[in-house]
C-alpha cells in the first residue's frame, strides 16, 4: 500500500519556519514590501503542495467509489 508521507509534512513545516525567519530578517532590514511578498510566495508554494495532495485524494476517491 502507499506509505505515510511524513516528508511532505516536514517540508511544509520547513517552509513555514523559513518564511517566518526571513520575514523577521527583512523587517529588520527595513524592507516591508519584500517581507509581505515573501509571505505571499511562501503561502503559494505550500498551497501548491497541498493542492497536489488533495488532487491525489480526489483521484483515488474517484477510482474507489467511481464517482
Amino acid at each position: 500500500m502507499n506509505v505515510l508521507r511524513v516528508d511532505l509534512l516536514f517540508q511544509i513545516v520547513g517552509i513555514g519556519i523559513f518564511i517566518s525567519v526571513l520575514n523577521i530578517v527583512l523587517k529588520q532590514a527595513g524592507k516591508e514590501e519584500q517581507a509581505q511578498l515573501l509571505t505571499l510566495v511562501g503561502v503559494v508554494i505550500v498551497f501548491l503542495m497541498v493542492i497536489q495532495l488533495i488532487g491525489e485524494l480526489f483521484y483515488s476517491f474517484r477510482n474507489i467509489f467511481n464517482l
Binding site: L8, L9, I12, V13, I15, G16, I17, I19, S20, N23, T39, G42, V43, V46, F47, M49, V50, L53, I54
Partner: peptide, 12 residues
C-alpha cells in the same frame, strides 16, 4: 508565526 500555513499544514 504563520497561521495561514498552519491551516494548510493541517489540511495536508
Amino acid at each position: 508565526s504563520r497561521p495561514d500555513i498552519a491551516h494548510l499544514l493541517s489540511i495536508g
